[in-house]
Nucleic acid binder design. Sequence first.
RNA 1: GUGCCCGUAGCUCAAUUGGAUAGAGCACCAGCCUUCUAAGCUGGGGGUUACAGGUUCGAUCCCUGUCGGGCAUGCCA
Length: 585
Amino acid sequence: MNLLIPPNFRTHFAELFRQAANAITTVDPTLRIELARTKQAIHGDYSCNLAMQLAKTLHKNPREIAQSLVDHLPDSPYIEKTEVAGAGFINIFLKNAAKQHYLTFVLRSKDMFGTSNVGGGKRIQVEFVSANPTGPLHVGHGRGAAIGASLSNILTAAGYAVSREFYVNDAGRQMDILTLSTWLRYLDLNSIEIPFPSNAYQGDYVKVMAGLIHQAHGQRYVHQPESLLQDLPIATNGETDDTDERLDQLIANAKKILGQDYAYIHNFVLTEQLGDCRNDLMEFGVEFDTWFSEQSLFDNGLVAHTIQLLDKKHFLYQQDGATWFRSTRFGDEKDRVVQRENGQFTYFASDIAYHLNKFERGFDLVINIWGADHHGYIPRVKGALQALGLDPARLEIALVQFAVLYRNGKKASMSTRAGEFVTLRELRQEVGKDAARFFYVMRKSDQHLDFDLDLATSQSNENPVYYVQYAHARVCSVLSQWEGDRADLVDAGMAALTTAAELALLQKIIDYPDVIEIAAKELSPHLIAFYLRELASEFHSYYNSTRFLVPDTSIQHARLALIASIQQILSNGLRLLGVNAPDKM
RNA sequence: GUGCCCGUAGCUCAAUUGGAUAGAGCACCAGCCUUCUAAGCUGGGGGUUACAGGUUCGAUCCCUGUCGGGCAUGCCA
């Protein structure tokens, strides 16, 4: 047996079972042979349910088939014994030596342990956050950021070539509203008071940007503000006249009044907000390879081109002056407008162009991480891809449910308009980057997340992230007090690791690459968080029951090799989640 | 009204996607520091997996219905 590089035991055994199955019957080559980790030690380390799967077609007793499979199973140097159990499970017991020797592999692999090539270098794009650059990121964006970044790291570890992308919505009405809001605040600084619409952006950051413009350019952008209020729809019922129509007319007037200067302010606020966003995310440990501008799709004519393509394929029609896409042909509940009566393309139109562009860039798989409120949007986007002749299965959409903040046992309000939402930056300051990153991926992403600020702050010692980090720090502490050379541990004899706790820890270590593989396949970063907590738990228990710095060097080295391996995995796993692994706490 | 998602211990959540006796953390109770970090450990009680049927060797998972919750149903982005 090759002692240097042990196999992935699950795929290794699956292959053996396939050979055994072929020996007793003709097996469908597409049949997936599943090896599962057992929950209980008496069932061994891995179990296979192949006999039960074959029972139907063979019309035989599953236990009988299981015994036959075991009889035909090729020899493996890693198997201690096999047993037929229960309804027809085949349980595999690994040799202790195989488990023990695995530590050498872990310690040799170091930072690379856990990585694999199951992705085969396939190109994947992960698009996430993609928040409108119209204000600070809030805690909802934070969850998308944490999940997207962790998932990207996991996919990279699993052997995919990952590209992280942020789609910048710099072309739409929201940006115009922000531009107008900023200009109004700027006029206010120049002692020109115009009633501030309640449906414009209220946040203080708007005043800050207005101040920056005022500071740099003085009165440069004060233009005939008196005509701003021309042609506004008349309020019909009292003061609550801040309608969308009114806001749009204000924007139109501002564009007319400002002329070229409108573009300056628009560009200024965009640059400011994007810069703030990028900075915020960087401090959160989240970085992107590409910031893709929506506006560029218009500038390059890609939106018009894409709509023409759809038209050529006869998926468009005119009605009520607008242009519609026949998304009902692809399972959507109604057709969707791509070009409005006024000639403007809709957001959907540019989004089709964007997704076409993604695939034209050569990605094998495209993953969008969206807020769950966008779920109704999926059929039309996939439909558009199909209409363009692309396989919609190459677009995978991971929905992330909202994070609901709780403070003092009550829901914290997150109304943007009232300006009282909690920003990601505030959250980071309150609970710290590590706790926030870990907390965000502690739940399955398609589950609602209750983010208890009181638990994450005042009782921060009970936060799970400290539990994992503490395990890492404890190992570091032991190793630093040991007077030896870490390199000596790599080839230490591991035969002394024979207790139930030690063998269970060894198996847990062996599981790590599988966890990454499954987390990548299922797009489920939370599996890493759960695994790390379990590993830390088993370590803490072991720590309390066993001394490491014992006189007998063969025992000492074996145990230190074990905990050094644990430390390596904790460090590697936390890195995937964007969490620090401190040496001291 | 219609569509999608969800309902698991007092609370917050898992369960290798159909596997063996459904698991953790909080919270509660009782213990463990003169010895490598007590942000830790050990033990204990806690469940008809919302409810009722169905499919099969086997169901928290799949199907049907009922009840309850969330989201979506723009020529917004």
